[in-house]
């Protein structure tokens, strides 16, 4: 079987050690909350937060995945596992394909540098050579619609303008796996539509989209598969409409 792009998580558990918390101040009966991971104590009585627990997921080409869950349910941590930032405490992650993480538009964005300089910098962070960035600079510039602003320092930009810049570069690297955390909704209506079109084109080229959001409408529009996280566990997994229904029921 020829697997070109995809990832597989097997029994993935992520525990964050918490060094600043006073372990004595935490009650022995472990708190099980609806928001946030489980707070636990290991054998050396060190406090840790279990951000993900026994997650098993497999995605392949053309999958559009929506991650939903309450604050602190592990969406961002899961995205970071997909991105290869965290090697799990337990379990295994297998991944193949160029990842474009779009969690935070400020990555490699230097406010003192101009838009063009930032395109170059972010492109290099995402693994392009200078020649490749130059080749695509025109396309990136056109997508941002920022025009002459690209020659201005980025501190003169609004949040939405920075977002345009980041998204343009992030999707221009021809990623195979696009990981997004919520912020697509930050742009103005016209740009959101344009961004969604771009994401569509991307997924149609047989990429994988993973989008974390609290916004059911956004997920319904952009995803086909849903993952509902609850306190670090996968509570539901399947067609997006059913997962969203489950999410709705959970909140009532």
């Amino acid at each position: 079987m020829n697997v070109e792009t995809g990832f597989q998580l097997t029994g993935v558990t992520i525990d964050f050690p918490v060094y600043s918390a006073d372990s004595r101040s935490l009650k022995n009966d472990l708190l099980r909350k609806s928001t946030g991971g489980r707070i636990a104590r290991n054998t050396e009585s060190r406090v840790s937060v279990r951000a993900l627990e026994d997650v098993n997921l497999t995605f392949g080409r053309g999958d559009r995945v929506g991650l939903i869950g309450a604050n602190g349910s592990g969406k961002t941590t899961l995205l970071r596992v997909f991105a290869g930032v965290y090697q799990p405490t337990l379990g295994r992650v297998w991944r193949r394909g160029r990842v474009s993480p779009l969690f935070d538009w400020s990555l490699g964005i230097d406010p003192g540098a101009t838009g063009y300089e930032n395109i170059m910098m972010r492109g290099k962070f995402l693994g392009l050579t200078p020649a490749e960035v130059r080749e695509r600079a025109g396309e990136i510039a056109a997508f941002t619609e920022l025009g002459d602003y690209l020659a201005m320092p980025v501190y003169t930009y609004s949040a939405g303008m920075k977002l345009r810049l980041a998204l343009a570069v992030g999707t221009c690297i021809e990623p195979e796996i696009l990981l997004m955390d919520e912020w697509i909704g930050l742009g103005d209506a016209a740009f959101v539509e344009k961004a969604e079109r771009r994401v569509d084109e991307f997924v149609n080229r047989a990429g994988i989209l993973v989008l974390a959001s609290h916004n059911p409408a956004l997920l319904e529009r952009n995803c086909t598969t849903g993952v509902l996280l609850d306190a670090g566990r996968v509570r539901a997994f399947g067609p997006i409409s059913e997962v969203l229904r489950e999410y709705g029921e959970m909140n009532h």
């Binding site: 029994g11 026994d54 609850d230 996968v234 997994f237 399947g238 997962v243 489950e246």
Partner: peptide, 11 residues
């Protein structure tokens, strides 16, 4: 879609 008992899923 899994039941809500929190069991882990695989596709």
């Amino acid at each position: 879609v899994a039941s809500s008992d929190g069991a882990a899923e695989t596709s």
